[in-house]
Nucleic acid binder design. Structure first.
Lengths: 195, 195
DNA sequence: ACCCGTATACTCGGCGCCGGATATACGGGA
DNA sequence: TCCCGTATATCCGGCGCCGAGTATACGGGT
């Protein structure tokens, strides 16, 4: 069986190990420090599952079993050549090929007609506020990172997210207005349904 | 245990059953016909799991077991009052509260520095083309739906997706240019790393 | 009358993911 | 010296999800 590129955590593991050999717990620490866990979901249970899967597929390999003091043994892993190839190929396809991801909000907004217009307006406005908050938080963070002298390339994913959040805020703002003023197509039947 | 709002397919089931009682296979058919499966991932295996889970939590209930001809028995389900409440509450929170969803592309682009700039440019441009294609396909679909006399509210999620895709295309276009011209912050060290 | 492709309706085994549990070591305060 | 909170490092049981499999019925062609 060929390796299935499901859990992006495996991508992070390959990337970390291509810097230097590490044991799983250290990978988690490093991801935390670098705020990578904001981009890739980190979960200790999954981490060990993923490491085992990568080992089975010979994309990484246990390189040593250390025993410092009387601590639990730690298995240090290193990336293999096949692993490096997998990392680069996976990365290319992640970037080049958009994937259907079924965002929750799309599911929600597609059924917004089930809520009375007044309720819909309220929840949409709540989201708008939440998104605006995320945007200011992101702006502050970017300011800080740039101030620390980190190059843009080091936080390019935040730049992307910022662009997406701005677009979402704009759309939400439009939809809220259209709902408030009753100009969204189909408003009349929508209102009629909820009396 | 209280019901866990994990699989959005459960949301679709509640929504469908709040129209009229159905058996699982019919839910799937209906979702297909309405192109709901483009917004909510549909999988037969998951469908039956989800229906069973909803039943356990008494959000839906088996209302009849039909037997037409010698076909396999079909269990028809109906939504309960608790189910209707759950549907509306879930819907509100889906819309009002943005959720971290870890999009694959963010993971990919965050590691773009691992690829040589030339390769990065190539894959980003491939994505740009793919996104552009999706946009034209969506535009055609919207035209068609509007032509059929469907109100905007019936395809509001496509409107949203269109806005998001446009923003993504714009960002990709910017990033491609910045990479091509070497104006993205940190470009020099990026290039140096790959010789 | 027979065949077979498609539609109908559900079932099941496996696997990946999750989150809480486990076990030891270290360090600082009373 | 004792205690306990935190850090280190991994393990494991359960459950939800997936997709391929199963079994019957219908209907059109020859």
């Amino acid at each position: 069986m060929t390796f299935k590129r499901t859990n992006p955590l495996a991508l992070a593991v390959l990337a970390l190990l291509s810097e230097r050999p590490m044991h799983p717990y250290e990978m988690a620490q490093t991801m935390r420090e670098r705020h990578q866990e904001e981009v890739i979901k980190l979960n200790y249970g999954s981490l060990y599952t993923v490491v085992e899967s990568l080992t089975r597929h010979e994309l990484i390999a246990a390189s040593a079993v250390q025993k410092a003091g009387n601590r639990p043994e730690r298995t240090v892993y290193a990336v293999t050549d096949a692993g490096t190839a997998e990392l680069h190929d996976w990365l290319r396809s992640l970037i080049a090929e958009p994937a259907r991801e079924y965002p929750r909000f799309e599911a929600g907004i597609s059924m917004v007609g089930l809520l009375p217009p007044a309720d819909a307006l309220e929840v949409v406005q709540r989201r708008e506020a939440a998104v605006a908050e995320q945007l200011t938080a992101l702006a502050v963070l970017l300011e800080k990172l740039a101030g620390m002298g980190l190059p843009q390339l080091a936080w390019i994913e935040l730049d992307y997210r910022m662009a997406m959040l701005r677009a979402e805020r704009a759309w939400l703002s439009w939809f809220a207005t259209a709902t408030r003023e009753g100009t969204v197509g189909g408003y009349d039947t929508w209102e009629d349904r909820h009396r």
